[in-house]
Design a protein around this nucleic acid. Structure first.
Length: 428
RNA sequence: GCACCGGUGGCGAAGUGGCUAACGCGCUGGUCUGCAAAACCAGUAUUCGCGGGUUCAAUUCCCGCCCGGUGCUCCA
């Protein structure tokens, strides 16, 4: 509950809960577009005040938390010698009180941080055993995490900017209260760059997911780009990269289509129904994929394993070596890959439509790229009818008419692929 | 200024004390096709920011410099 939320909610004349709900909903919609699973539990700070209060009380019993003149409660950092262990900071040399702000004089030490904040006049507050006020930022996370996951748990994630002071403070509070290891593995993702520079509104390179969808980029391509670089690495997010990933995703989808839909030779009497080299390659890909993810989530290597397989299997298939029974392992490899990468199922058109509808409600339809707007109202039936008409023209060798229809469809963002099995189409 | 992380082909990026420096995209040529698309094949970094050092051997380890990012104050 930061000052800004409290202020803006008050200005809008609504409660904190109602005010934040809108942003929470938009956030989860975006995650859904990117095929990120919805969390099993979504914890909201306003619903867990008593847990926070009792955690502070536990610290107060040990004199680690103390009450200042104004009714705020602070954490006594001097009582947690390991402070700084996560962010590898050494506070030994810092003189206490060397640099102290005017409004911090109530603290015993400048570095002590707030656990509970006394209310300023007119501010939203909770009446608790600690006195009136609201929780400090760090205590929210410690209290809720331990309430749902226990005193000690495996993974805690966050952006690299939160390592200090937020996560450091979480450790200090939690471990002081429980005398147990709070988190076994910290998972800090690095900020991305946009076109080689940091993303910021003042740089003019600040894009939301919806901005990108309105520009015509696909949700799957965005996901693929974000995932293509290991989380510890600083990803350079570029439009060129997005276009590249669009094509890479398309290649994987086309490959799966090919494996699923082609009529591969069935074994005849006395023959085995699979090519051993293909099965071996698929199994090797699965192994390499798992090993890469097990190695600190090396998504770049994991993804390379799948492309290695795709190239090999395509080549073998072109050479006529693919057999019906090879399908099983190859598709299993794709399934395993997609369980993590989640780009093979094509929901892109749905999310683009969703975003266009949203933009219309917000009066921002003008921000959509013309080719994105052109896809509105292009139904599958309409496409199918044109595709069939073109096939007819092709059969009568009326190539001029066939090409005209192909161009017309291209204008609607539809790409055609002719094959022995008939014409396939896909949204560009 | 200090601390931590990074700087690899046209772009994104993996990786390692010594084996042909992955993978994706792009580009060039070829196969296939009515033409395309898809797919495949071949080629595309004598070289891993710059300078020095350690070593039989460094892109990989150490030191310095340059560049980028994050933190170092409040707030979340």
């Amino acid at each position: 509950m930061d000052d800004k939320i409290i202020r803006n909610a008050a200005a809008a004349g609504v409660g904190i809960d109602e005010y934040t709900r809108k942003y929470q909903d938009a956030f989860f919609e975006d995650l859904k577009a990117l095929d990120v699973e919805h969390p099993e539990v979504v914890a909201r700070a306003t619903e867990h005040i008593p847990t926070m209060v009792s955690l502070i009380e536990r610290l107060a019993e040990q004199d680690i938390a103390y009450r200042a003149e104004d009714g705020s409660w602070y954490f006594r950092i001097a009582r947690f010698p390991e402070y700084g262990k996560l962010s590898k900071k050494d506070f030994g040399g810092i003189e206490d009180g060397a640099r102290i702000d005017l409004d911090e004089y109530e603290k015993d030490s400048a570095r002590d941080f707030a656990l509970w904040k006394a209310p300023k006049p007119g501010e939203h507050k909770w009446e608790t055993a600690l006195g009136p006020g609201r929780p400090g930022w760090h205590i929210e996370c410690s209290a809720m995490a331990m309430e749902f996951l226990g005193d000690s748990f495996d993974l805690h994630a966050g952006g690299e900017d939160l390592m200090f002071p937020h996560h450091e403070n979480e450790i200090a509070q939690s471990e002081s209260a429980t005398h147990r290891t709070f988190v076994r593995h910290w998972f800090h993702v690095r900020f991305l760059l946009v076109e080689g520079r940091k993303m910021s509104k003042s740089e003019g390179n600040f894009y939301t997911l919806r901005d990108l969808l309105l520009r015509g980029y696909k949700a799957s391509a965005i996901r693929m780009l974000l995932i293509s670089v290991p989380y510890r690495q600083q990803l350079n997010f570029t439009f060129e990269g997005l276009s590249a990933e669009t094509i890479a995703v398309e290649r994987l989808r086309t490959f799966r289509e090919r494996i699923v839909n082609m009529k591969w030779p069935e074994p005849s009497q006395g023959q085995i129904g699979f090519d051993a080299a293909i099965d071996d390659a698929a199994e090797a890909a699965i192994k390499k994929f798992r090993a890469a993810l097990a190695d600190d989530l090396n998504t770049a290597e994991a993804r390379a394993a799948i492309f290695d397989m795709v190239r090999f299997v395509n080549a073998q298939a072109d050479a006529g070596k693919f057999r019906a029974f090879n399908k099983h392992v190859v598709l299993e490899a794709l399934r395993e890959f997609d369980q993590i990468f989640a780009v093979l199922e094509d929901h892109d058109a749905d999310w683009t439509r969703f975003t266009l509808d949203w933009a219309e409600r917000e009066g921002r339809l003008g921000e959509a790229a013309p080719e994105v707007l052109a896809t509105r109202g292009v139904t599958n039936e309409k496409i199918q009818a044109l595709v069939e008409e073109r096939d007819k023209a092709k059969r009568t060798r009326n190539f001029a008419r066939a090409d005209a229809i192909r161009n017309e469809l291209a204008g609607m963002g539809i790409l055609l692929e002719d094959s022995k099995e008939g014409t396939r189409w896909k949204r560009k």
